[in-house]
Design a binder for these strands. Structure first.
Length: 879
RNA sequence: GGGCUCAUAGCUCAGUUGGUUAGAGCGUUGCGUUGACAUCGCAAAGGUCAGUGGUUCAAGUCCACUUGGGCCCACCA
């Protein structure tokens, strides 16, 4: 009917062709349609610097499945796409490219540098978007957003000012605190951006001499000896008898010869180290807190780049780790290094460049979080927002309930500049404003300047679910969004903060469901990362196996919320499946007469009695469809994918198509095989969009794109347990005969004769409609049905439930072997009978188990008795 | 220190509220080119469900502990 299909599916040309067509026909665009319900997902915006990795592939495949499914289900289904400006990450990338020209960003100045970043963004920023398209992502690209777009930036400033002016006291404040400082990126980081990692370090015991008796010492233990240059006290626990007498005495800080006091504070753990702690308020959060209580001096000993500063005497300009070594040498020389013990410790690391962060005293902007967290905790506790899998709820709540203020200022250049202005004249006014102010609101001076810092990238990302909508109508229709699909790593960074922002700025939760998928790992369980060199590049897989194969393999191996361990050969499964779909379709299309597929199924049912094979495949299809819908409703994507897979491959292809080959020209068979294929294509489309479209377009009745079709309507009335059971009997018989052939080493080339013998009359009737199918698939020349009879020596007999399957043999049968096999079977069933008998004799079981279970067990036991009886007869017959 | 998670076939993993004789993909073995597909078909081998104890009529599934992986959080210098 159409041009000949190739023997193998060729994803490459197919995928490019259809993605283009979909885009050109605006099939991804979602409109406000009052007659439809809205379904909306906002993409976790990838960094503009991003290139597609397996994590993205998994994340976006899941979203695309949901979006395509809901679209077919009749929702106005919007997948809102965009990218994140990713402050530090992007700045680092551009800085690296500048470095190749021997330049630093300081050489350009902030304005030129920012222009450079925009250039870079224009040139490379859409890489990841192009890659998402290769994956088949059906985002509404006409709505693509960037977190530094003008409108989006305005939303960011609005949010800032709104928090600033929140009554009764603003939620934004500036303060000197110990923050996480990355000496390489030279910026403050939030706590979330400085994850702790275990390090093998040392505990150094330093001797600080007493001023009054220079030969007496207090020994302190530290993991960062270089910070001793900034010590302004030594603290002990007031209850510590060892030091009681020394409290209030003065020590001479070695190397710097500063006089420092011994103070008492309950914070000190008597059991750790020596019980005496050096206090470095400018370089340790605990010490800082302590210094406030004891009014200690704060001495910062480092420059922002991690080198020792002018307060470090001879160590000035040494890197902090170099200074550590030299200081230790110097102390050793003066016999002030008591000992060194190996000591595991954990230190914060910059999440962008992995440099060990320095706790560092500086003036930063913070958001008070407690009051924002409160409604966000409620929303999850009350179930307005649900986590899938639910265990993440606990993680979320635990973090939210212990939330700390959020450091939002960054000392980088690329980002949203903090919308705060200072007055150079009166020097007292600090103004926050959405629009750039022209003059000081207090003294009227025009000499005002904006804060140089920029906002944390996440201060813009947390607005994503609503700031992406440009107009109110869209916002009202699509917000709150439906599902958020993301990875566990960013629950705190992003998910939690979006919930707070949604409630704070919109008065409504941002999404109803949060689906947290696993992390993609390599086959050894390591996280896939460039530095480990264990990456499987999704684009390579797409090239080699096709996007559908990539998508299907990923999804079918990803159980809900479990991490995914991937190796390359995994993707063969997806490729093979695509090829299977291709070839089954090819076979059907080759044999299909267009005039046969127009009939309406319902009318057809009224007029014609369907063959068992046709009834069966319809029943199985709808059973599968039902299960698929149930699985998708609770985000069990692997189950859904695997159901469709095994239905299509093992039921539709392996059984059904083989069953109907002899009757393929029949009207009803033509119609049913076509209908099932057509419906299957629609059901598999969210998972494998490209191949389903390619075949769809070749169907004789196809109108428009498969994307525009509705999800198959679930016809429960076509699910028939009795049909499925009846067909199963045929399969059992066929399998048994195949098995007998294999055992007797009778190839398919030799025609065989089979007798089915039965004891129950009703079986005869059931079997009669199966005969032709059995003969066909088991390659039986002559099949006869008779009442039970005495087996002969030249017959090979297998028992199957109510039947005996008898294969008369012309040659010699290995009787001993057959008897042995029979005996093994008998023994096995007998042991199962023993179990069942015990079970059914148990009064507790009879009184407490549900009736259905008991009945089922009784039936099973009865069947087993019969089977054993028959096997015994066969055995005796053979003797 | 607190929390989460995993342990099921040679490998990678499913197994939804406890209820048939525990499944799949890959791999292995044997057979097979019948006109959809060798990226295929048919058949087979392979598991005391990490260990111990408990709850239950019934446990891979629930509980406790043990062992061994992975992850997250936490201000022990």
């Amino acid at each position: 009917m159409t041009e000949e299909l190739s023997k193998q599916y060729n994803p490459k040309e197919t995928e490019e062709k259809w993605y283009k067509t979909w885009e050109e026909n605006n099939l991804f665009s979602a409109k406000v349609s009052p007659e439809k319900s809205a379904y909306c997902i906002v993409i976790p915006p990838p960094n503009v610097t991003g290139i597609l990795h397996m994590g993205h592939a998994l994340n976006n495949t899941i979203q695309d499945i949901l979006i395509r499914y809901k679209r077919m289900k009749g929702f106005s289904s919007l997948w809102m796409p965009g990218t994140d400006h990713a402050g530090i990450a992007t700045q680092n990338v551009v800085e690296r490219s500048l470095a190749k020209e021997g330049l630093k960003r300081q050489d350009l100045g902030s304005e030129k540098f920012i222009a450079k970043v925009w250039d870079w963004k224009e040139q490379y920023g859409s890489t990841i978007i192009r890659q998402l398209k290769k994956l088949g992502a059906s985002c509404d690209w006409s709505r693509e957003r960037f977190t530094m777009d003008e409108e989006y930036s305005k939303a960011v400033r609005n949010a800032f000012v709104s928090l600033w002016s929140k009554k009764p006291t603003g939620l934004i404040y500036q303060d000197d605190k110990i923050i996480n400082w990355c000496p390489r990126c030279q910026t403050a980081l939030s706590d979330e951006e400085a994850p702790h990692k275990e390090l093998q370090g040392n505990l150094y015991y330093l001797k600080y001499p007493l001023k009054d008796s220079i030969n007496e010492f207090v020994i302190v233990a530290t993991t960062r000896p270089e910070t001793m240059l900034g010590d302004t006290a030594v603290a002990v626990n007031p209850k510590d008898k060892r030091y009681k007498k020394l409290i209030g005495k003065t020590l001479i800080l070695p190397l710097v010869n500063r006089e420092i006091k011994i103070i008492a504070d309950n914070l000190v753990d008597m059991n750790f180290g020596t019980g005496a702690v050096k206090v470095t308020p400018a370089h340790d959060p605990n010490d800082f807190a302590l210094s406030a209580r004891h009014r200690l001096q704060l001495i910062n000993v480092m420059y922002p780049d991690g080198k020792m500063n002018e307060n470090s005497g001879d160590y000035k300009d040494m890197d902090r780790f170099e200074a550590r070594e030299v200081i230790l040498e110097d102390l050793k020389e003066r016999e002030l290094l008591e000992k060194v013990e190996p000591h595991p410790l954990s230190a914060g690391h910059c999440y962008r460049c992995h440099t060990i962060i320095e706790p560092y005293l500086s003036k930063q902007w913070f958001v008070k979080m407690k009051s924002l967290a409160k409604p966000a905790i409620e929303a999850v506790k009350k179930g307005k927002i649900k986590f899938y899998p639910p265990r993440w709820k606990k993680v979320y709540l635990n973090w939210m309930e212990n939330i700390q203020d959020w450091c939002i200022s960054r000392q980088i250049w690329w980002g949203h500049q903090i919308p705060v202005w200072y007055c150079s004249d009166c020097k007292k006014n600090i103004m926050a404003s959405v629009e750039t102010p022209l003059k000081c609101t207090k003294c009227g001076s025009t000499k005002i300047y904006q804060d140089k810092d920029v906002l944390d990238t996440w201060f813009s990302s947390w607005l994503w679910p609503f700031a992406t909508f440009k107009n109110k109508v869209d916002l009202q229709y699509f917000y709150p969004t439906s599902t958020l699909v993301t990875a566990p790593e960013i629950i705190f960074f992003w998910v939690a903060r979006m919930i707070m922002a949604g409630l704070e700025f919109q008065g409504q939760i941002p999404f109803k469901d949060v689906y947290i998928h696993g992390t993609v790992r390599d086959i050894e369980g390591k996280k896939m990362s460039k530095s480990l060199g264990n990456i499987i590049d999704p684009l390579e897989i797409i090239k080699e196996y096709g996007a559908d194969a990539l998508r299907f393999s990923l999804i079918s191996t990803t159980a809900q919320g479990q991490d995914v361990y991937l190796s390359k050969d995994r993707f063969e499964q997806g490729r093979n499946f695509a090829n299977k779909i291709w070839n089954a379709s090819r076979f059907i299309l080759m044999n299909l007469k267009a005039e046969n597929v127009n009939a309406d199924l319902c009318v057809f049912f009224k007029n014609e009695k369907l063959d068992i094979a046709n009834r069966w495949i319809l029943s199985r299809f709808y059973s599968t469809l039902k299960k698929t819908e149930e699985d998708l409703a609770v985000y069990r994507f692997n189950e859904a994918a695997n159901n469709l897979y095994s239905f299509f491959w093992h039921e539709f292809c392996d059984w059904y198509l083989e069953l109907i080959k002899p009757q393929i020209d029949q009207k009803q068979t033509q119609l049913i095989m076509y209908k099932v294929l057509e419906k299957f294509l629609r059901a598999i489309h969210p998972f494998m969009p490209f191949i389903s479209e390619e075949i769809w377009q070749r169907l004789p009745g196809a109108k428009g794109s498969i994307m525009q079709q509705s999800w198959p309507h679930l016809q429960k009335n076509l699910i028939s347990n009795s049909d499925e059971k009846q067909m199963q009997l045929a399969f059992d018989i066929i399998n048994t005969i195949r098995n007998m052939r294999a055992q007797m080493e009778i190839g398919l080339a030799s025609q065989i004769e089979i007798k089915l013998t039965f004891c129950d009359k009703s079986v005869e009737k059931t079997i009669s409609s199966l005969i032709s199918h059995i003969k066909n698939l088991a390659k039986v020349g002559n099949l006869t049905i008779t009442e039970i009879y005495q087996p002969q020596k030249n017959e090979f007999v297998c028992a199957l439930k109510d039947l005996n399957i008898v294969m008369p043999l012309s040659g010699i049968v290995n009787v001993a072997e057959q008897i042995e096999k029979n005996q093994a079977k008998i023994d096995k069933i007998k042991s199962e009978i023993k179990n069942k008998e015990g079970m059914l004799a148990n009064k507790n079981f009879l009184s407490r188990a549900p009736k259905e279970i008991i009945d089922a067990e009784r039936t099973k036991l009865k069947d087993m008795y019969e089977q054993v009886d028959k096997l015994e007869v066969i055995k005796n017959g053979l003797r």
